[in-house]
Design a protein around this nucleic acid. Sequence first.
DNA 1: GTCTATATGTTGATAGAC
DNA 2: GTCTATCAACATATAGAC
Lengths: 214, 214
Amino acid sequence: MSSPSRPRLRAQPASLPPSAGPDGTRRRILETALQLFASRGFHDTSIRDLAAVLELRPSALYAHFPSKEHVLMELVRIGHEAHHELLRAALLDAGAEPAEQVRALVRAHTRAHAEHPQLALVVNEEFYALTPEMAAPALALREQSAALLMEVIERGVSKRRFAPPHPLVTARAIAAMGVRLPYWYEPGGALDVDTLADAHAELALRMLGSATSR
Amino acid sequence: MSSPSRPRLRAQPASLPPSAGPDGTRRRILETALQLFASRGFHDTSIRDLAAVLELRPSALYAHFPSKEHVLMELVRIGHEAHHELLRAALLDAGAEPAEQVRALVRAHTRAHAEHPQLALVVNEEFYALTPEMAAPALALREQSAALLMEVIERGVSKRRFAPPHPLVTARAIAAMGVRLPYWYEPGGALDVDTLADAHAELALRMLGSATSR
DNA sequence: GTCTATATGTTGATAGAC
DNA sequence: GTCTATCAACATATAGAC
């Protein structure tokens, strides 16, 4: 935390999904690290910064995590698993119609990024600070999540429900809407999460040229 | 450059627009810094790393830039100015029809991100490492570029050419397609830049519910 | 599990010779 | 404009007492 740089995200309490584990010092460390990594970045946040906010000595952190990188790895793991689980659950609820499946996936993707903006930022931007070994499980989940959308799109195309200009480019464009949310969307503002999720779902179906789009 | 982390972008020659200035050591520094900042991030690239690639001693860099942060500031400036100029030029060529204006803006936005992926990454992700004072000019340009698209969209809506579900959300979704490109698009691959730019323009017009979309 | 104290390396930047 | 040499601050992480 050398320089007084611009925070990427305004200071707001960083929320972790329940799957992050029970309350206690370990969870406090993860929540505080999430806040700092999202705001300043992994490499610009020192163990000392983290300890100072937690009102602990730096050495105390090593009773909970073997290294700073392991703290990031845990956040990246939690984020990827929660996201993937939300997508899978949404798809199970969606029925067999391709348009409904896309709507469900996009709504879940958008909700995840809008409701946990810090986690989304850290997962997407600080991911690259991990060694290949530490990033591998998250990378696998990431590819599975992307494949989920791609399969739904390709099924819709083969059933003549969708006619996107380019299926892969369209899939990336759909995913990008959610991934970019933490950079501009303000959770407490005029636009509520549900309206936003609906708008994204509608935009996705329009991109796909969905026959059942309004 | 402490840890052997995953590079964000495969090592490829980092291209800088001609507006970056004449050849010489100063330009070599900028090109090399662009490469390293894009691949490892600003905070994980040391003055020593930069000097080593340039085959210079660290102190030699201070004859060209007063600090590491000034090197980043210059890259951020170059990137924002080149991007904004491309958008302005594209809009001037586009005529008065809203759909053609959107198509021109999106094509230029996409080309800029696809043809200068490292610069796009550094401008978008490492921007936050700058102090507010050093980031201010770039931030102003960024807002002007966003306003350019927003105005074209709102003009199209008032002329009843466009009917987006939510103009601001749609504008952000359109911009996001380009901003996310460096993370997946491979310039030398099967998908050429022109086809990609066309696909993005088509997706943008579909999102807007453009009457003249194919 | 937290503390004090410290080991060991790296950081951005500067002084002054050529 | 580049070099050698160096400074002061900071980094991650560990040892060992309580």
